[in-house]
Simulated assay, not measured.
Amino acid sequence: MSSLSRSPHPWRGHRRASWRRLTFALAGLGLVVPLATACGGDDEGPDEAGGEGTSDASQELVIYSGRNEELIDPLLERLEEATGTTVTVRYGDSAELAAQILEEGERTNAGLFLSQDAGALGALAEAGLLTELPREALDQVEPTFRAEDGSWVGVSGRARIVAYAPEQVGEDELPQELADLTDPRWSGEVGYAPTNASFQSFVTAMRVLEGEDATRRWLEDLRANDAQAFDGNGPILDAVNSGELAFGLINHYYVYELAAEVGEDEVSVGTHYLPGGGPGSLVNVAGVGITAYGGQEAAAQEAVDFLLSEEAQTYFAEETFEYPLAAGVTSPVEELPSLESLEVPDIDLSDLATLQETLTLLQDVGMV
């Protein structure tokens, strides 16, 4: 790995999923709007310290943030300084915050929803609770990473990878498709996190791209091959790094976070990006949408513009090791392949909102 002069990242251990809580929350609200998520702030319960909105949209902005507070708060402080807007933030799980906005409807205090996952944004768009963003903002991001209807835009991206132990896996043995991970030669050697948000988003993408039956077969084959279940991406990476596992299904930035935390000399993990544009090549996004009824459109739009600015995009590239999506910013990590070089699936990320079906499938095959 290349040298990474970064400070340790204390939020690494918080990247866990809690998407089932959204299903229960939606059921309690009488809403049938399934969501999907990615990792990050969604791993924590909601912070009850919310804030009331204000009629003066130019002076105050209420943000519901599904991104981890420790990660995103420094950037939101910069947003306040750059825009002169007083920002009040309610932190929590993206799934639960989306359910909260769905419950609040036209009464919502939120002016902006900052989600860790495109699926949560897609669910709100489907319910008519997000406004269409200006073309100037949308055009800063490639169509793959924004809503087709203009209701949300991605601000950072994370790629699914197969992490591998180089001492156990030769380059000629790297999987070329997901089915390769169910080969009996790798029995007990693959780690996955069935309750983790990013894994569930990936399974949702497989359902959308390849259908329910094919997804079920792959999950059953993975389980039959004694794949090892973990609570999150971090423990999987640790197992691969220690040689306990040959492979792990995780998001790309975990490898660079671990190197920043313990030193790159302590990390012996290869990063393999599956070719072919299938669900294993998914690049999900954290994104933002302006609520339709928050009454804070002007301040919210200034926030969107800031999050797409060079300053914010550089923050994502250098502090979270995610892919920047706008402002021409590139990652400083030398060995990280460019976003343009990845063979990403042809999918509308808003379709990752069908989490309820994914959870049902994972329950049916005995994974959750």
Rank of each mutant, 00 (worst) to 15 (best):
S187K: 07
S341Q: 01
G30Y: 11
Y273C: 08
Y64E: 08
E334D: 14
R146I: 07
E266P: 01
E261T: 09
E318H: 01
G211T: 05
V89M: 06
G28T: 05
S94F: 13
P74M: 15
L325Q: 05
A260T: 11
S115C: 08
N233W: 04
Y192V: 05
R6H: 03
N109M: 14
V267C: 07
L29Q: 14
L181M: 07
V33H: 15
Q168K: 15
P143K: 15
L258K: 11
T131C: 06
A197M: 09
L249F: 00
R15Q: 12
T83Y: 02
E334C: 01
R160C: 01
R216A: 02
V89A: 07
E310L: 01
H252V: 00
E177Y: 00
G111P: 13
D93K: 04
E126Q: 13
C39W: 05
P275L: 04
R158A: 10
E261M: 13
V89Y: 08
A303Y: 04
A179I: 03
E335K: 12
R78D: 13
G119N: 12
E77I: 11
D351I: 01
Q313C: 11
V344M: 12
E60K: 15
D238Y: 05
N233S: 11
G30N: 10
I250R: 02
A125G: 13
A27E: 15
T83A: 09
N251I: 01
G277H: 04
L237C: 04
L71M: 14
G277D: 11
A110M: 01
E297P: 06
E80W: 04
E103Q: 14
P184M: 08
H14F: 02
E48Q: 09
L124C: 00
V344Q: 15
L336S: 06
G50M: 05
V368R: 14
A224L: 05
S2Y: 06
D351T: 15
A286T: 12
D238K: 07
T85I: 15
E81W: 04
V62M: 02
V190H: 02
A38N: 15
S5D: 07
D348P: 02
S151A: 14
S201F: 11
A326F: 07
R217H: 13
L130S: 10
I290N: 10
P74C: 05
A38K: 00
A137P: 02
E106S: 15
E189N: 09
